[in-house]
C-alpha cells in the first residue's frame, strides 16, 4: 500500500510588537491605533516585547489590556516579554496583571523545537 501523505499547514501568525521607550498616556493612543489595525486584519496572537520599555503607566497598560481582551474573544492571546526596567514592571505587579498576561522569554516566541 503506497504511502498515504496527508499535509496540514499550520499557519499561525504571531505579531511581535517591540517597544522601546515610555509607554504612557501620551504614547498609548498610537499603540492602540496600530493594534486596532492588526486585529481588523484578523491577527489574534500578539507578543509585546517590553524589554526596552523604560516606563509603563496605567494608560499604557490599558492599551495592552484592550488588545488582550479582543484577542481572547477570538481565541487568541497576548504574551509579554518582561521589561527590564522596574519603572515598567512595577505597574504589572501592582495591578496583578503579571498573573493575567502570560510572560515568555524572547527565545519562546517561536514554538520550542524550531
Amino acid at each position: 500500500m503506497p504511502l498515504q501523505i496527508q499535509t496540514i499547514e499550520h499557519m499561525i501568525r504571531i505579531m511581535v510588537i517591540t517597544l522601546d521607550g515610555r509607554l504612557d498616556a501620551f504614547e498609548a493612543p498610537a499603540l492602540r491605533q496600530k493594534c486596532d489595525k492588526f486585529l481588523a486584519d484578523g491577527l489574534i496572537h500578539f507578543v509585546f516585547d517590553l524589554t526596552e520599555v523604560t516606563m509603563l503607566d496605567s494608560a499604557g497598560l490599558a492599551a495592552m489590556v484592550s488588545v488582550l481582551k479582543r484577542a481572547r474573544l477570538k481565541n487568541g492571546d497576548v504574551r509579554l516579554i518582561w521589561p527590564r526596567a522596574e519603572a515598567a514592571s512595577r505597574i504589572l505587579k501592582l495591578t496583578r496583571f503579571d498573573q493575567v498576561f502570560i510572560s515568555i522569554e524572547a527565545s519562546q516566541v517561536i514554538p520550542q523545537g524550531f
Binding site: S58, A62, S66, L94, T95, R96
Partner: peptide, 21 residues
C-alpha cells in the same frame, strides 16, 4: 480599590495605583 485584573477592565486603575504607592 484595585480592579480585578481578570475582568480585563481598560481603565480605573490610576487612583488605585496612587493609593497603593
Amino acid at each position: 480599590s484595585m480592579p480585578d485584573p481578570g475582568a480585563l477592565m481598560e481603565g480605573g486603575y490610576g487612583m488605585a495605583i496612587i493609593k497603593n504607592l
